[in-house]
Design a protein around this nucleic acid. Sequence first.
DNA 1: CCTAAGGTCTCTAGTAGCTATAGCTTCAAG
DNA 2: CTTGAAGCTATAGCTACTAGAGACCTTAGG
Lengths: 146, 146
Amino acid sequence: MLTIGKLGEAAGVKVPTIRYYEQIGLLPEPDRSAGNQRLYGQSALDRLAFIRHARELGFPLDAIRDLLSLSDRPDQSCAAADVIARAQLAEVESRLARLTALKGELERMVVQCAGGRIADCRVIEVLGDHSLCATDHQHPESEAAS
Amino acid sequence: MLTIGKLGEAAGVKVPTIRYYEQIGLLPEPDRSAGNQRLYGQSALDRLAFIRHARELGFPLDAIRDLLSLSDRPDQSCAAADVIARAQLAEVESRLARLTALKGELERMVVQCAGGRIADCRVIEVLGDHSLCATDHQHPESEAAS
DNA sequence: CCTAAGGTCTCTAGTAGCTATAGCTTCAAG
DNA sequence: CTTGAAGCTATAGCTACTAGAGACCTTAGG
Ligand SMILES: [Zn+2]
Ligand SMILES: [Zn+2]
Ligand SMILES: [Zn+2]
Ligand SMILES: [Zn+2]
């Protein structure tokens, strides 16, 4: 049996994050010690490791929730799981395309700036006028930082 | 003079977003009509277009705040602006590297899945065990969606 | 001149995925 | 038995918005 701290250490997840996952129903409520502290077994560790790895691969918690409930039914078809993974792949690919365009524009502007006064700064100039850009680089970004 | 709706239309920014920018001090408080409605001039439009473009390029609002205050002092050196742009470029490059690794792992797992039962699903299997991954793909993601 | 539609006003709360703080209790080592 | 670390709950904060409620302003048609 693991305390929440040991569990977090073992899975590489911070303690408040574990409590948050429990709160949103991603982890089941564990047994408690006589003094009301959470006690976890191997299955909780497996589940948490699964969540962590899926998060590292960028899956949103909603998708992870679906993947977990699928993995609880080992005899069913994995088609739904594959759909979720392919959707995530598509999401990553679209972000990659966008970031590649952004990288190009940012490189252009830092390279073109000769480094004088603000009035002549290519960075400021380009930011104020998209027609100076070489690509379209629409906005849709995604995902949050750790 | 533009109403907030016209300004938003002209700059490609939604009305509540404009009010939000004003609230956090990114846009100055504009004059009001007799009936208390906001009225904007050309300078507000320029400033909002600048913000929008910088957002499209992924700059966080804090960086945009700094860039705007720099652009208000045209005679100073643009070194600080260039530093901000290069930091943004570095951020984009690091996200690109990470997303490229993620894309590789996701492709591997969807390709390797033969599509049978959950118990044999490569997607579920890999999500539960990072040692099946080919790369390290640490977590740090960034930025939010539009 | 009046009315109806649509734009605008303020304020509040919600989104994702946590992180941080406060003030308390429990546990384990010495 | 004491002390300090770790745990508990509850609440608020983070980014950058978005959505809603309910009231007010503006303007074009009749
Ligand atoms: Zn410059
Ligand atoms: Zn542009
Ligand atoms: Zn499968
Ligand atoms: Zn992995």
